[in-house]
Structures are given as C-alpha cells and as structure tokens.
Design a protein around this nucleic acid. Sequence first.
RNA 1: GCGGCUGUAGCUCAGCGGAUUAGAGCAUCGGUCUACGGAACCGAGGGUCGGGGGUUCGAAUCCCUCCAGCCGCACCA
Length: 570
Amino acid sequence: MTSTYETLRIRLQRAFDVLEVGADPVLRVSERSDYQANGIMALAKRLGRPPREVAEEIVRGLDMEDVATVEIAGPGFLNLTLASGFLNEELRALASDDRLGIASATPRRIVIDYSAPNVAKEMHVGHLRSTVIGDALARMYRFAGHEVVARNHVGDWGTPFGMLIEHLLDLGEDQAIATLSIGDLDAFYREARAKFEASDAFKGRSRSRVVALQSGDPETLRLWHVLVNESIAYFSAVYQKLDVTLTASDVVGESYYNEMLAAVVRDLDAAGLLVESDGALCVFPPGFVNRDGEPLPLIVQKRDEGYGYAATDLAALRDRVSILHSDELLYVVGAPQVQHFEMVFAVGRMAGWLPETVRCEQVVFGNVLGKDHKMFKSRDGATVKLVALIDEAIERAYVILDDRGTDLDGDAKFHLAEQIARAAIKYADLSTERQHDYVFDLDRMIAFEGDTGPYLQYAHARLRSIFRRSGDLVPTDSHFALGSIAERELALGLLAFPEAFMSSLAALQPHRLCTYLFDLAQRFTSFYDACPVLSSEGALREERLALCDLTARTLRLGLSVLGIDAPEQM
RNA sequence: GCGGCUGUAGCUCAGCGGAUUAGAGCAUCGGUCUACGGAACCGAGGGUCGGGGGUUCGAAUCCCUCCAGCCGCACCA
C-alpha cells in the first residue's frame, strides 16, 4: 500500500505542478497541524512572485477531498489538516496490511560489517554499539525486503597470535581451553602479554611462532584454530545473551582474506597506483595529508613485507563487490577509524574495485562514555566486560520485577528479566544519534520511566492485556470516526509509521525510529487514559479495540526491527 | 599544524533539504485516580541553542571567525 505520507506528497506534488517549476514539495509532520508543507518561500523566489500568491495557487490545486483545512500560515508554509473520511480509509488500509504500510522493496544485497571482536580478547562496551546498531540495521533492511549478508570481521590474525599460541602451550591445551571456555579471555590475553614483555625467551618463541603461523605450519595452525574456535563459541554466547542475529556462520575473520592479499598488491601495482615509500608499498589517495602536510599513504604492504589491515580491508571490499555481488556495503565501525575507511574506499574507487553504483559507507558511531564523560571504565580503570554489564542489567530487572510483584515465576520470570534488560541496554544505545558519544548510565536506562525500552514494552503489555480480557477479539471491519482528540492524535501517530521507518532506514539512523515509537507510546497512553475501551459499547468499542490492535502491532514491529522483544505481559 | 566530530534547560538527549511561541525524558513543584495494568495521565517553572559576525522578511539549522572538548594524522588492528 501507499503510505499516508506518500499519498499526501503526491497530492501536493500535483498542486505544485500547476506552477510548472518542477519543484519537490517538502512535507513534514507538524505538531500544530497534521502535516506541514514547506518550501513555498523558495518556490516564490524562483518564480519571482509574491509568496502569498504562490501559496494560494497551491491551495487551489490541492485535492480538497482529502484535506479538511488548509491554512496559509506565514509566507513560507501551509498547515494541512486531514479530512476524517481520508483518515478512516487510510487507517482501514493500514489495519488490514500485515506489513503496516512498508512496501516490499526491489531486493538489493546489502553487506553489513558489524560487531568485529578480537580473538582471545574480551568484548567490551565498544563492541556493544557496533553489534546493536549493526543488528538493528540488518533487521530493518530485511523487513524492508532486502537481502542482508552479515559479516563479522573478527580479528583472528596478526602478530599477537605468536604469544597467544605460546601461552596456550605453556598452560597446556586443556587448561587453556578451560580458561577460555569460562569466558576469561582478558586474563588469558593479559598473562600472555605480561610474559611477552618480561621474558626475552618467551618473546623469541612468540616471534618464531608467528613465522610458523604465517608459513602454514600444520601444528601451529591447529593450535590457532583452538584459540579461534573457543573465542567464537564465547562470542556466540554473548550474542545469544544480547539476542543478536549474528551466528558463527557470519564470522568471516581477517584470516579469510590472507590468500587474497598478494593479489591486492599485484593488481594495485598493475594499475600503476602503488608507490614505494620508506620501504613500504603504499597508495597515496589524493586529498589526504599527514601532520607535516605531506601526502598520507595507505600502507598496503609493510617494510617487513607483512600486510596491515589496509590490505585486509581492501581484499574484503573487493570480495564483497565481485564475489558477493553486493549492491551496498556498510561498515558499522567507530569514529576513530573514519579516515582509514575514507582512504580504503578512495583506493577502492581508484582501483576500479568499487563501482559508483555500489553504495559504500561507514556507519560511524561515537564512543561510550561513563557518567564522568570519560571513556567507559570500571572504578579500578579496567575495561568493563560486556557480559558483566548485561548480567548486571538482568539482575536489576529481576529485582524490579520482584518489587513490583509479578505473576510469573521460575524460568518465565528470569526470561522476562532478560527481555527487559536487553530492551533497556539496546534502546539506550539506539535512541541517541549514533554519531554522538553517549553516556552509559545503567541506572537511567533501566529506570523503567521516561524514554526507555521498558516503557515501550510496558505500553505494549498493557495493550495485550486488553485483548486477553476481551478474549483476543480483534475487530476486522471498524469505522474510524475518531471522535475525540486523543483518538485522532493516536491515529495520526499510527499513520506516520511507514514514513518514520523508511526515513530512519534511509538515513541509517535507528534513533529516528526510536523517537517515533516513544512518541507513539505516549500518544497511546494519553488515549488510554482518556478513552475507556472495554467499557465502551458498540461501534465505539470496536473502533477503540481496532486502534489498540494496530498500536500493539506497530509497537511490536518497531521494537522487533530494533532487536527488542515485546513481551505479552510484564 | 592539518582534518573530522561535538557544544541546545540542573542532568540525559531530540530538533531529518531555514519557518509559527526551540521540544522530550529525568529531576523539582502542583494536580488527576473507588479506572481496561500507577512502570500511568494532566499541568507549571526552568533555555542569551558555546561567543561574535554575515546571508535572509525569518537561522539551533546555511557561510565566516573565535573559544572549549574529544578523535585521527606511515608500517598495531
């Protein structure tokens, strides 16, 4: 179906076309009217005519069947109020559409690179953002009808593996596996690092172990696999705890690209892009300079002939375009790597590996800060384990459920605590503009009041409770008279869903959908307070039940594409 | 030094091609309720939108400049 927003835009476009300037109307949801048409001032300027005259001409061109009132307010915009007949028809169409107005798009293949933890290293809050944002985008794209290929670019290669493997041998394989499988990855890494720095003998062994790894020594590779597999098992457990769609089969680590690295160098050279500088093989994409104002290289092959992450990222980019045939590449990676990816993408374009038709973008996100606005750390200055954070949130949710008194017990109660905790953490992360740093404050996000995940879950649970009481009866053929202000406000909120979803996805900004859902939940609670549902009768009862059903479905769908559960009761 | 990001209410944040009196949440104060789930609803106070200049009938938004903070700037990813 066509969304209300689209319908209006088309109407408005027709009115604009009367003026024959080919301008696009700008339509926005307004707080003081149902919609507001902007951009008339600019149009008048282009036409060289008085704005009021232009506005009047647009109003004459509008299809007044759908619009109850039009107000020329100020010289630059029109306030539109929708006709009740139009609202009724739109709501009926929305209510009978199980996709809630989101048309299934012509499928494109989108590769989303997200999460990317490192083998034998703990996942911390930094990984939370990439994982949660990436997963929300993946779910949104899938719902919109696209094919998503998730890529978990795990750090599973490089010089640290020499010392890690030697440490594993020192501990004995069984002991090492035991340490890793209980999830104490940081301890393992720390011990290895400490030995590396303290003992020259260990350092020497580590270095030769790296050489053995790179040359494909079978026993070394076997030991490497032990480390990798244990870590991936651990990551999978974290993903499960977070209810993230990533699986072990989405893991395509850095090592996967090893065999392609020589070809990257060879082909860049053949294209005449490769320059030797201080012994390293580099590409100098235009427009990048270092602190002395000299051209900044992307180092593809190091002086020691090893490959850096630039080579790996170029190989991955190539693989994703030419082998996976993706139409769009997204990298959900933190802000510090902006320049790196700009350079990689620039080199990809220069080499012809990244056609102009392929959209390629870093989905940048800001840092997670503590309450002191410094990088998020525990009191003793150590990085905080992601699992510890999730567990703490679950524990708090559990305590709150106890305090509130709940019908649930045992597994069901624990499961609900998990759902609430995940909602609190994910919503807090997703609801701010992703490029900004955000303050991680568990107290606030799990406070269950205000603009939080649990508030949205609660609104949904209250809605479901209505249907439990009324015997799950959902009216199918209601007329939406929208006699009260609260009903009308709720209805307009419901009709805005497709536009909110699509613009959120187009901008790769999940927080816009969050803002929409919170606004909808508030419209609902106001409605719920003002309009009795079950104690109403006849057509009014049917209408209100239908509004409730549509609201519940919209909340559930919106939350689900953000990766948040909507429990039936809380 | 160059580049990027950020600066909006006491706190945490929205404000999406310029638009009516800059909006939420928390906190504070005051109301509502024998109510379908009070994890609620309604209302109030609180802002020189970092400073200054410019463009515009109109700027938190666009341009310039200054200030403050964070990040990046050649072989670790």
